[in-house]
Simulated scan of single mutants.
Amino acid sequence: MSTPHIDADPGDFAPAVLMPGDPRRAQLIAEALFDEPRLVNDVRGILGYTGTIGGQPISVMASGMGCPSITIYATELYRFFGVRRIIRVGTAGAMQEALQLGDVIAASAAHTDSAMAQARIPGVSMSHAPSFNLLLAAVEAAATAEVKMQVGPIFSSDHFYVSRPETAAALIAHGTLAVEMESAALYAVAAAERAEALTLLTVTDHLGRGERMTPKQREDCFLDMSTVAIAAALSR
């Protein structure tokens, strides 16, 4: 069965899907961590793979950038391909001083400036939250793997280059850990489709200190985070 954005057959996707933004990261995860990965989608260059880990089926597919893009792909996966869990595995810019490059964040809430949130339920400011079961499983998996993880709210912004110091300061004052561009939309789709979602993020930049990972550091820590995501995705 095909949708406007995914060309796959029924059963091509596992019930649990990891979702990085970058198609090349989807390929990296599949080739490095899955057993016998096979390509199941490449429409518009958005790569999707399905394989197994420990005999359990698992998939990975890119989301592209921003709330509109992840909304399209998550909706189609949940609604038409039998997917019940999506874990976004992405990168973020740290906002809190205590965060260090390489730290992993589990987003317990996702604030947003996206108008998509306001359009979903007119007159209501939605609370964008993950699946508690997935969040708990990720926290437990990180502890077992000795991966440093912070749990807290993040900010899903529609803007990458716009500078808004007052907005950033207010978010920091209210405990926001980091900024990225997709999680609020993913959480909203999961709620609408009565499915599960979680975001795990690796801190690759620090907005306050101007620190930034090298491409090699990004790749290495991304795989570490993905192993935690896989454990959560395959949990009962």
Rank of each mutant, 00 (worst) to 15 (best):
T71Q: 09
L101R: 04
A138N: 14
Y161K: 09
A138L: 11
N133S: 15
G64W: 00
A62R: 01
R120A: 11
V104W: 03
A129I: 15
A98E: 13
A94N: 01
L99E: 00
P130G: 15
A74R: 00
G64V: 03
D103P: 02
E76L: 01
A143H: 12
Y73S: 00
S157N: 10
A168S: 08
A137Q: 12
C67S: 07
E166T: 07
L101M: 05
A106W: 02
F80W: 09
P122A: 01
S125R: 13
V147G: 10
V151N: 11
I154S: 04
F80C: 06
L135G: 14
T144V: 13
F132H: 13
E140F: 06
G102L: 08
E166S: 08
L135Q: 14
A119L: 11
S69D: 03
P57E: 06
F155E: 01
F81H: 05
S69Q: 07
I86W: 07
A129R: 15
N133H: 15
A119F: 14
K148E: 12
S69L: 06
A141K: 13
E166A: 09
Q100C: 11
A106H: 05
S59A: 06
I154H: 10
L134R: 13
M95Y: 09
P122E: 04
A92R: 11
I121R: 08
S108M: 07
E97S: 13
Y73F: 01
P122Q: 03
I105Q: 03
L134V: 14
A137V: 15
S114N: 05
V89A: 10
A138K: 13
V83Y: 07
A137N: 13
V151E: 10
M61S: 00
A143P: 02
G82M: 08
L101K: 08
G102D: 03
F160D: 12
H159G: 13
G93V: 03
E76M: 01
Y73P: 00
I154F: 07
R88C: 02
V89Q: 04
M149H: 10
I86F: 06
V139K: 13
S125P: 06
A143T: 06
G102F: 05
P57I: 01
T144C: 07
G64A: 04
E76H: 01
V124E: 10
G82D: 09
Q100V: 02
M149N: 10
S163K: 10
L77I: 04
V104N: 04
A98S: 12
A110T: 07
A143Q: 15
A129S: 15
L134F: 11
P68N: 02
Y73C: 00
F160G: 15
P68S: 08
D103S: 04
P165N: 02
S59M: 02
F160I: 15
P122Y: 04
V60K: 00
C67F: 09
A117N: 08
S156R: 05
T167G: 01
I86L: 11
S127C: 14
M116S: 07
L99H: 02
I154R: 09
S125T: 12
E166W: 07
V124K: 10
S163D: 14
A141F: 11
